[in-house]
Simulated assay, not measured.
Amino acid sequence: MRTRTLSAVVAGAATGTLLLTGVGTATAAPVKSDHHSKASAPATTKAAATPARAAWDGYVYLYYSTASNSAWASFYGPVPDFAGYTFDHGVDGYGQRVKNNVNRAWNNDASWAANIWYNENYTGAVDTLYPGESRQLKVGVRNDNASLNWTYVG
């Protein structure tokens, strides 16, 4: 059976997510924190330029280029606009803006798909990376990215 998620206004003020599992049934899906962060990746050796693939940490890692020493930044929650964020780890592209400069990404969250959007506030073209997926972004979003949100996939 396929499942779908959708946002709904609950009690007129809060936004929640419903997981639709069949005709006439709906259950509450877990809510990913609205907190977003540029926190560092899991512990790596001092010389390493990319995060270790040791365990799920709930972050999506965005990379400046496909180079092995590419600069990267990590995010946990939704980001309505990447303006003001820079690549703060690695070498190639270090200090460059994240907005409109992401070439590839790695979703290290076990239950949430990362949606990388062309425009601010989650509009326009979107590229979705499912749990564990690591690849170059699709044409239309690659180096033309402005926001990030998440979809619960279980």
Rank of each mutant, 00 (worst) to 15 (best):
E120R: 15
V98I: 13
A41F: 02
T25W: 06
A54T: 14
N119F: 05
W117S: 08
T5E: 15
R97C: 04
D127H: 03
T66I: 07
A41D: 07
A146D: 12
Y76T: 00
T21I: 06
G140L: 05
E133N: 05
S68C: 11
L20I: 15
N101D: 12
V31C: 02
V79E: 12
N143Q: 13
N108A: 04
Y61I: 03
A71Q: 04
T86Q: 11
A14I: 07
T123L: 10
L148W: 04
T25H: 14
S7P: 13
T21V: 08
D92I: 00
K32M: 05
A146G: 06
E133P: 05
K138Y: 05
F75I: 04
G95L: 03
D92R: 04
G124C: 02
L129K: 04
G84W: 12
W56H: 09
V23W: 05
G90P: 08
S40V: 03
Y59I: 00
F82T: 06
V9T: 15
G84N: 10
V139T: 09
A83C: 00
A43D: 10
G24H: 09
N115G: 00
A105T: 00
T123R: 11
G95K: 09
P80S: 15
A11M: 11
A29R: 09
W72Q: 13
S74V: 00
A49H: 14
D127R: 01
A52S: 15
N119A: 04
W112V: 06
R142M: 09
V141A: 01
V139E: 12
L20S: 05
T17S: 14
F87Q: 07
A41N: 13
D34N: 10
A110L: 08
L6Q: 14
P131H: 05
E120K: 13
R142T: 04
N108F: 01
A83V: 07
Y59K: 13
Y122G: 05
A55T: 10
V126T: 05
D127V: 03
L20W: 05
L6Y: 12
T50R: 15
V79G: 06
P78C: 01
V139I: 11
R97D: 15
A114M: 04
V60R: 00
D88A: 10
K99C: 13
D81A: 15
A125I: 01
N108G: 00
A47K: 14
S134H: 05
L20C: 06
L20F: 10
D92G: 02
A39K: 11
S111V: 07
W117G: 12
A43R: 08
W106F: 14
S147E: 05
S37D: 15
L148F: 02
T128W: 02
A48D: 15
V102G: 01
V91C: 00
T128S: 11
E133F: 04
A146R: 06
G154D: 13
R142Q: 12
V153Q: 07
A47C: 10
F75C: 03
S70D: 03
M1D: 15
Y85V: 07
A8Q: 14
R53K: 13
T86P: 04
K46D: 12
Y152V: 05
K138G: 13
V60T: 11
Q96M: 10
W72P: 01
L6D: 03
S147W: 03
S65I: 10
R4M: 08
T86Y: 06
G58Q: 07
W117D: 06
H36K: 09
G22M: 09
K46T: 13
E133D: 11
